[in-house]
Design a binder for these strands. Structure first.
Lengths: 196, 196
DNA sequence: CCTACCGATCGGTAGG
DNA sequence: CCTACCGATCGGTAGG
């Protein structure tokens, strides 16, 4: 065990997430980043291969977190209501606890080169398809309205969850779990076939 | 009347909106922009004062459109349900018909210098306060649930409306008005005190 | 609106 | 991880 459990590389990613989220990827220079880490610009290249590697790594980590959080729910034996509730809880938790990298992900992933762009686009669609499947399952079980447009309903849920990166700030009046609960309570009536 | 109703300046803003929305503000060079307009980089400065003027103008126009669309509804004599429906309709219409500048607004306004940043932040809050007032009015009239958290409810509505800039594309299966209608139908049950 | 140019800064590398 | 440096490109200007 080292005094710090973070490797230098992890420190670089962390500070890069912060700067990229605040100023944007292109507006952040490698010298800015190096200065924040107490080193010279050129020294960064002893640890990383280039600027785009930073963006790729940050964005990939962000999509991985959503995937890791939602995947177990896919096959979970839960009612559609509870699954939605839990999905929103972990989804918003991922954003709240990794706000910088989530922000970089939402703002900058499209600026990745084509080879990474496609991978991330796939990952993104996995999350959206999770909510589509959830809505579809709810309809099939007779719990959600049969008249729902599956795609639009999924996007509506995703809109609400993802938008939290815009306004959520640590130390605010509502904890991440509280936000998810209030959101779920507001969304469910529009999804349910009959209110209980 | 000229053959084109657009001034050269308006053309510059339009192409800048397109490039900024696709590549990002900082990743777009003035030479890129000039080339798309069939001129040399330096020639742009015969029409505009600098790069930031472009961003300021695009972002200001975007906020103006939301303001212009929603302002008449503030004092409109309508039921809260109808007001929400109409608000979402015009809100999403603004995004759909000016997708490039809306995208630039959402992605880049924070990168404006402090003097413009504050102005835009105010404009942004005017839109959010519109939805807060709408929710509050609905509660006071007994139409919306008294248990609603006004701020969170407003943000939820705003999330759904704003997120359309991410996925809406012209020529898709749903027109802007259709999206707004389906969204309203899904959101209202969670807001209403009793379903009608 | 063009040509020619300015200083500044960029991402990245060589050699230690 | 530093010093010193590379070519490329940036936003912007002077003078026409």
């Amino acid at each position: 065990m080292q005094p710090s459990t973070k490797t230098r590389k992890e420190q670089i990613y962390e500070v890069a997430s912060e700067l990229f989220s605040q100023r944007g990827y292109h507006a952040t220079s490698m010298r800015d980043l190096a200065a924040r880490l107490g080193m010279q610009g050129g020294s960064l290249y002893a640890h990383i291969s280039g600027k785009e590697e930073l963006l790729v790594e940050i964005v990939t980590q962000a999509t991985d977190r959503f995937d890791t959080a939602l995947r177990p729910l896919r096959t979970a034996q839960m009612s559609p209501q509870d699954k939605l509730r839990e999905a929103l809880r972990v989804h918003i938790q991922v954003i709240a606890t990794h706000l910088d990298s989530a922000t970089v992900f939402f703002h900058e992933w499209q600026h990745l080169g084509p080879e990474y762009y496609n991978k991330v686009a796939e990952r993104r669609d996995v999350v959206e398809s999770f909510y589509r499947d959830l809505v579809r399952e709810g309809i099939e079980k007779g719990v959600f309205r049969a008249t729902l447009d599956v795609k639009i309903a999924a996007i509506l849920i995703l809109s609400v969850a993802n938008w939290t990166y815009i306004w959520y700030r640590e130390g605010g009046p509502l904890k991440s779990d509280d936000i998810a609960r209030v959101y779920t309570d507001m969304l469910l009536p529009g999804l349910l076939a009959q209110l209980v």
